[in-house]
């Protein structure tokens, strides 16, 4: 039922745990090497979600926290496909998104940035991929914000994304950045990823032709989750 095991996670394609340029990692990074056991049924299955769980406005952050008006800011569509490493679409992938408002302020009790809250924006939404792995949500482009790290560092505009595929092994939380943002190369969190080509994969591209005319610009962002090995033979070879 659950099928073949997943390819090992290529750790070089992710930020290492200890990244001193991002100070919060220093006391939160394990020292010891990770243990790599065989994958069991528990790793190869996971919680699954259905489109029925979503509310009608979950994928519209411009309106889903409305107090009578719409959220302020540049209106954008974020869309793309959820694929696995074998380039197969992943249907019913749950994507949870959270972000700052257009001024760079989070609607969170612990955020004290001086930019004002937007009463019509909570910065929380959800969407789910369809049978072709396609997903879409509408929001406003978040503002950059300062944070204490090396003095006042600035985050580039970003949307946090949490993704569930079909198995717990595919679980992923990441951040989406926007093409052309000059703050991307200056950000210590972006730069936890040492390889600029890998960073590029977190940059959503302006998708001008898929705009909603006179309403919203579009950005394209495809998501790739781990894929299953193609044959059991290959599994044994790699696992040896």
């Amino acid at each position: 039922m659950s099928g073949l095991p997943f390819y090992r996670r290529e750790r070089g394609e992710h930020p290492p745990a200890l990244t001193p340029g991002y100070k919060s990692s220093v006391l939160r990074a394990p020292f010891r090497p990770l243990v790599s056991p065989e994958q069991t049924e528990l790793d190869m299955t996971g919680p699954t979600f259905g489109h029925g769980m979503l509310g009608p406005l979950d994928n519209d952050l411009i309106r889903n926290a409305s107090q009578g008006g719409e959220a302020l800011g540049e209106r954008i569509i974020v869309h793309g496909r959820v694929l696995d490493e074998n380039a197969r679409p992943i249907p019913n992938a749950l994507i949870e998104a959270w972000q700052a408002n257009a001024g760079g302020r989070y609607a969170h009790t612990n955020d004290g940035y001086l930019a004002p809250l937007d009463p019509n924006f909570s910065g929380c939404g959800r969407t789910m991929s369809d049978g072709d792995g396609y997903y879409r949500f509408r929001t406003i482009r978040p503002g950059p914000y300062p944070w204490p790290n090396n003095g006042s560092d600035w985050r580039p505009a970003h949307i946090h994304l949490s993704i569930f595929g079909e198995a717990f092994s595919q679980r992923l939380i990441t951040q989406l950045y926007f093409e052309g943002d000059p703050l991307i190369p200056l950000c210590p969190i972006v730069n936890t990823i040492p390889d600029p080509d890998v960073i590029e994969r977190l940059v959503a591209r302006l998708d001008f032709k898929n705009q909603m005319p006179f309403d919203s610009l579009a950005y394209r962002f495809d998501i790739v989750l781990r894929g299953r090995r193609q044959t059991y033979f290959e599994n044994r070879e790699e696992g040896a």
Partner: peptide
């Protein structure tokens, strides 16, 4: 094969989403 999307920290405001 495609490359897995890289991870980034969930950050201090993970609760919102």
């Amino acid at each position: 094969r495609l490359k897995e999307t890289p991870s980034q920290t969930a950050g201090p405001y993970v609760h919102i989403g």
